[in-house]
Nucleic acid binder design. Structure first.
Lengths: 144, 144
DNA sequence: CTTGACCTTCCCATCATGGGAAGGCCCATC
DNA sequence: GATGGGCCTTCCCATGATGGGAAGGTCAAG
């Protein structure tokens, strides 16, 4: 299976497959005589795994760990659970922050006439330069 | 006021002040004879505005628009409200996605023994390569 | 006049992803 | 067996907001 077929089979773009290859996330692809990458079922499954894990918001760092546990038949499920739980806590923290932003804005918007006049509580709030409760530092790499 | 004082006065790092300067987000800083940036109250207020807007999750793009409305005394509050409402919808969408991720993971984690044994519903789920409901495309630039 | 704290610009890195160019390969159709 | 279109390869660049750091100029207090 070449990269295009692997891409179709997994839903991961060829670009990203090459990237995962480059950062050694997946087992190294073997190459044909003409230097085409060749993927077998094992790698296809790894790519699917990565895709699903990304869709659950895991960072590449976490996925590296998850993949290594996945490959290890003797893994303790405790370790997998720990990674998942940490990620859930991370998600919850971010959800909380965004919820706070949305709530604040909903309130301000509700107080804004939204007509032709210039008076606007939203701008007024921004002008006051209130401090946010805490400039939260997040673990790197959960863009999307 | 030089950049360091402006930074202290607004809580925006000097690095970021220079960046906002570079992308013409704030009014251009005047310079002293020795090429130091000089900020007046107007610009200090703009920096505070930006800071507060960032803390509410607005993208630079949105902040550009908000700043321009802020500077315009004749703005219709409708336009400000529209930007805010769009942003709230964006936040809500993202919150929804993350909530779904967290809920899924909470369920899986709950089903995982988390002991020395290797069996793990979390890994099992990742292995199945289920499709996420929909690969949501978000507007660029809301990292943090 | 020295010293240390500040300022300047310039370059590089992040993280996951996509765009695109230049060149090589494969297969089907003429 | 040549041609063409659709693959593949590598390489470089961009994103968005932010920080790190180097090299060199400036200011103010001692």
């Amino acid at each position: 299976m070449n990269i295009g077929q692997a891409s179709k089979a997994t839903g991961v773009t060829a670009k990203m497959i090459r990237y995962y290859d480059e950062i050694d996330l997946v087992r190294p692809a073997s190459r044909t005589d003409s230097n085409y990458r060749e993927y077998d079922d094992r790698q296809i499954n790894e790519l699917r795994f990565i895709k699903r894990a990304r869709s659950l918001g895991f960072s590449m760092e976490e996925i590296t760990q998850l993949l290594s546990l996945w490959r290890d038949r003797g893994r303790p499920s405790r370790e997998v659970k720990a990674i998942a739980d940490r990620h859930v806590a991370d998600l919850d923290a971010r959800i909380g922050e965004m919820q706070a932003m949305a709530d604040t804005l909903r309130h301000l918007s509700h107080c804004c006439a939204g007509d032709d006049r210039p008076d606007c509580p939203i701008l007024a709030d921004l002008t006051e330069g209130k401090e946010p409760s805490d400039p939260v530092k997040r673990r790197p790499s959960f863009n999307r």
